[in-house]
Design a protein around this nucleic acid. Sequence first.
DNA 1: ATGAATTCCAATCATTTCACTTGGGATTGA
DNA 2: TCAATCCCAAGTGAAATGATTGGAATTCAT
Lengths: 149, 149
Amino acid sequence: MKLSTKGRYGLKAMYDLAIHFGDGPIALKNIAERQRISDHYLEQLVANLRKAGLVKSVRGAQGGYMLAQPPERITVGDIIRTLEGPLGPSDCVLEEDATSCENAECCVTRVIWEKIRISISDVIDSITLQDMVEDYHKMKNKDHYMFYI
Amino acid sequence: MKLSTKGRYGLKAMYDLAIHFGDGPIALKNIAERQRISDHYLEQLVANLRKAGLVKSVRGAQGGYMLAQPPERITVGDIIRTLEGPLGPSDCVLEEDATSCENAECCVTRVIWEKIRISISDVIDSITLQDMVEDYHKMKNKDHYMFYI
DNA sequence: ATGAATTCCAATCATTTCACTTGGGATTGA
DNA sequence: TCAATCCCAAGTGAAATGATTGGAATTCAT
């Protein structure tokens, strides 16, 4: 019941881009260093985020990535779903493409999985990158010697 | 972000035992047939549930398993945690043995994982096997030709 | 113009996890 | 006594995970 590194690294990278929103393109190498992620691996994740329209890229020297929309318009759910696929603790309750089960109508355990799925969705859909940026600024004020992560 | 079959099959089996609570020992073979699970695989799961004190066994012919406590005293969370280990979308927020991260204090993404973990716990800790048995009886009344799953 | 920095793309790979299966031994009721 | 059951340990094939490798294309700075 864990998220894979795709979702975890991906959110870190998007958070990093949100902190630097408006600063022009940010090179993947810098994000990978700050967040301590293999840059080649991060590249694969960001490729998916780009295809999903969440980031845009600038090629060539001094190129990099930036959020395709302002931080308040991108939710944690947008990012996690892009990288992990449709959510749900069981295939029979996935947000999309739920595996049809002939007994879905009378499956008592299914009701549980659905509740879990909804509770997770509620959390991730209610948090935007802007919320995270604000958390960052609060933390920065408390302990001014710490850099964000 | 899925539960493994351990948690899913395990909950089905415990639900089956809850339906038959008070009927004496239920053979694993019967549970496996009704729930359409490999019986040898289920055996491994039930072994863990027994070690955790959630079921008790009767050996020999006409033996089987039964809930060690009444259905209202066993939660979905008890079962899932026994079979899947401590919950959490990331190692850094596991219910037990959270991997200590030197930056935990100032990690903004960690806050998200914690919220997800709590929302899942809230769901699974609030549902008992008795709740599921009641769901079963409601469904049975609606469509009396259907057996539970 | 050139070259360094960067994104883009495709393939490969080692390890781990998953979901079982296999093969038996121990216990007990009929 | 034997069939049914629980108990136990090990093995296994397939898939997923989390990368690494190697290079092509693009662009800015000089």
